[in-house]
Design a protein around this nucleic acid. Structure first.
Lengths: 170, 170
DNA sequence: TTATTTGTTCATTTTTATTTGAACAATGTT
DNA sequence: AACATTGTTCAAATAAAAATGAACAAATAA
């Protein structure tokens, strides 16, 4: 008996691509889970995972078809990934349809996540801590100590980010 | 006109505690928001925030009353915080009611989070990546390269954790 | 023993987050 | 022009996560 988990999708002379469907599925699901840790929707992980493992750039329509998701979700997911700098448009492909590929450098992924998701939180934390200090007008010691601790956490987190990028970035 | 944002709750001779209600609310809300970044429920943040800023240890009943949440939520929230090592029972208080206080050392908070939330994910990632390698039996180059990249990310994240603890831990 | 206090568990309800799909805009094609 | 293709937006539907509250257990007090 002949067993195969592989399929030839594009079998023109020039451009034969053997696709391991099983593997591509595993990778897609891997990212679907992974992004949830970061607080992003599953669909975003599925899209990124598909692009990460794909041998070719994919269009919105390709993704929507493969993932069986609505065009709306696909469009929104790609938008989020573009904002994070996790995917980019591939230049020079005929027609007006846009094709995407995954940015696979951890450096830029981490950078994008820090810029879009972490920094804004640290900024708003700074403002809020300022208000706490203002509220402790009479300088109660216990409160002052706690607010100060909080502010130290914030400062240290801020210092951490560049280091994080350095370690994770290539 | 007499304006005050403060209230004396415990005005016995020995143990007068002036409580800044406004400030305590700010801190509670601060943590309610903050924990969402970590993927924990708001109620957990409210509980931790209350304990973090409180001048005294609080019991489950205290928390449930202040936060206007159900006993069920309070119990579950405290359980999670105990598991993370973010709160601890205060020894030597009369009666069978248990009182809690916040662990305010960033070091142990980060440690608990890494142990409970990060490490398990990295472990399961390792297993999954192993399966991906197994699926790429015929050694397709493109796939091998991507799987390898993924595994590098995993390894680097593992290396990062102790560094993270060192920087954030006092 | 019976009642009270304290706390947990978990099925149900409520809230929040995500996805869908139809309407729309923009651009290219016939 | 009329039509087809591609993609976005957003109100509504759906799915997922969290909170509730009643039932229960354990421990103490009366």
């Amino acid at each position: 008996m002949f067993e195969s988990k592989e399929t030839v999708t594009d079998a023109t002379e020039k451009n034969a691509a053997v696709v391991n469907v099983e593997l591509e599925l595993m990778v897609r699901d891997f990212f679907a889970d992974a992004v949830k840790v970061l607080g992003l929707p599953k669909s975003v992980g599925e899209i990124y995972g598909s692009l990460f493992i794909s041998k070719e750039p994919l269009s919105l329509d390709d993704l929507v078809e493969r993932l069986g998701m609505s065009k709306g979700s696909g469009s929104q997911g790609l938008k989020m990934l573009r904002t994070l700098g996790a995917v980019s448009e591939v230049e020079g492909i005929e027609g007006r349809k846009v094709f995407y590929e995954a940015d696979v450098e951890l450096k830029s992924l981490v950078g994008g996540f820090i810029r879009e998701e972490i920094r804004p939180h640290l900024s708003s934390a700074k403002v809020k801590i300022g208000r706490m200090e203002a509220s402790n007008l009479n300088g109660d010691e216990h409160y002052a100590e706690r607010i100060n601790k909080l502010d130290n956490w914030r400062k240290r987190s801020g210092l951490l980010l560049p280091i994080l990028q350095k370690i994770l970035g290539k």
